[in-house]
Write a protein that binds this DNA or RNA. Structure first.
Lengths: 117, 117
DNA sequence: TTCTTTCATCGTATCTTTACGATAAAGATA
DNA sequence: TATCTTTATCGTAAAGATACGATGAAAGAA
């Protein structure tokens, strides 16, 4: 396998950026919300709700599956999707850990206030 | 202004996807972590730590500033950056609200287990 | 079997992101 | 003033993301 650019970054940062990328399109956020609300749903229902074509919805769902956030099963002629709860929790945990880190470092003064006084 | 594609999605989803996009590159995650750890720092220090060129670092920092997550002040010949704590909290709140929503909907069975039994 | 429904994938056009070298701007230093 | 340092921006190449129509595959209905 070739050396990718991301190999040069810390795995922790790469991991988080991949989670974030999964959420970085409004269609994908909407799909996750829909799956949560309906508890699982067929692809066609998602297509109805979103302002994009069926092929594009499939593409976005595929990304969410690749990210591990969504599972799918074939139900007759249609596909049933649902959230992967474990992955959602891992994502939430990773992000909360990041925020803890971002909160902890800085104490009081920001550089902008420091610069203005 | 022209009608963009994202106008067709819900503002709430667009907003979240924009936060996520800000975090969707390992360099940007690393920059945020660095700023937290050092409490504020000069552009050159970030360049030293990351495996990318100075121009690219500037570009990533600019995106973080556009997203509101980072503030910057000019200090003599150099630029000092720091986290925007308020924005970080807003981002954390938005994401936690999403996770609450994702957790609440589904109760027990996922479609994958349902499909296998 | 033939037709319909449902979804995934292919092919492709367009736009965006990422990356870098080169250069410009602006403060420091000599 | 001339020079050095530091950073932002420009120009641009390469890669990736997004979108859609068309097509394919697979299950169900007629």
């Amino acid at each position: 396998m070739p050396i990718t650019r991301t190999d040069r970054f810390k795995p922790k940062d790469v991991r988080l950026s991949l989670w974030a990328k999964a959420l970085s399109h409004p269609a994908r956020v909407a799909i996750l919300r829909t799956l949560a609300k309906r508890n699982a749903c067929v692809c066609g229902e998602i297509v109805e709700l979103l302002p994009i074509a069926q092929a594009t919805v499939s593409q976005h769902v595929k990304e969410l599956k690749n990210a591990g956030l969504v599972d799918g099963t074939i139900e007759g002629p249609s596909s049933c999707y649902c959230l992967n709860k474990d992955a959602i929790e891992k994502l939430a945990a990773d992000l909360n850990a990041l925020f803890d880190e971002l909160r902890s470092g800085c104490t009081t003064t920001s550089c902008s206030t420091k610069g203005k006084e």
